[in-house]
Amino acid sequence: MTTVPLYEESAHRKHTPWRRIMLAVEPYIYIAPSVLLITMIMLVPLVIGLSYAFRDIQLINPFSGGFIGLEHFRTLWTDAAFWHSMKNTLVWTFASVVLQFAFGLVLALLLNNPFPGRGIVQALVFLPWAVPTFLSGLNWAWLFNPVVGPLPHWMAALGILSAPENILSDPSLAMWGPIAANVWWGIPFFAITLLAALQSIPQDIYEAASIDGAGPWRRFTDITLPFLAPTIAITVLLRTVWIANFADLIIVMTNGGPADQTQIVSSYIFTQAFRRLDFGYASAVAMVLLILLLAYSFVIILLRQAMLKR
C-alpha cells in the first residue's frame, strides 16, 4: 500500500492538466463578454476622450488636432462660465438628491406595511421611473408653460407667483423647473431600493423591540434607520454622482438658459462639444468633473469605513 505512487492511472494523468485549466479559467469565461464589452465600448473611448483634453480638437477647424498640453486647463481656470456651472451643479445635485431621498424614504415607509391595494398603488407611484427622461423633461416643460400647462396658473392663484408666467424663463427661478422634473422622475428609484432594504429587516426584531417597550418612533430611529444606513449610504453616493452627470432634463427643458442660470457642468460639456464643437475643451471639463466625482466617492467611502470602525 505504502509504495503505491499517488497517481498511477496514466489514463487520468492525461485529463489532469485539462480539468485544472478548465477550473481555473471557468470564472473568466463567464465574465469575458462583460469585460470585453465594457473595455471596448467604455474604457477605450474613455482613455481616448481623456487624451482629447490635452489636444486642440475642434470639428469645424480642419487644422486642429495638435497636442497643446495643459492649455485647456489654464483656460478653464479663468473661465467664469465654468465656475458658474460648478455652483449650479452643487445646487442642482444637492436639491435633487435631498428631495428625492426624503420623498423616496417616506414613500418606502408608506409602502412597507401591507394594506389592501398595495400592489396597484406601488405600480402607480413607481411609474414615473419608466418615463423616458427626455419625455419627463418635455412633459414638465409643458406643465410650466402657461399656454398649455396648469402649473403657472395654480401657482399664481396660490400667490407663489405674482403672475402666471413660465418659471423656466425667469433666471432666478429657472433651476427649480428641472429640479421638479428630476424629483418627480427620481423618487421611485430611492423608494424601490429603500423598500427592498426595509423588507429585508427581520420582522421579529420589531416584535422584540415592542415587547421591550419601544414605541413607533423609537422603533424607527433605533431599528429601521440603523438597518437602512448602509443602503442609504450607498444609494445616496451612487445617486449623487449620477445626478451630477445627468444633463438630459436641463438640456431638454432650458438648454442651460436663461442667462446660463441652469447651466451645470455636464450640460456645459454638452454645449462645448456639440454646440461649439470644441471637443478638446469639452474633454478637459469632463476630466475635471470625473476627478471631482471620484474624489467625492473616495471621501464618502473613507468616511463610511471610519464610521464602521468606530
Binding site: 499517488l6 497517481y7 498511477e8 492511472e9 487520468h12 485529463h15 489532469t16 480539468r19 485544472r20
Partner: peptide, 13 residues
Amino acid sequence: GAIRIGGQVVNEL
C-alpha cells in the same frame, strides 16, 4: 493527497 473511488484516483474528476 489523493482520493480513490473504486481504486481510481478521482482528484481531477
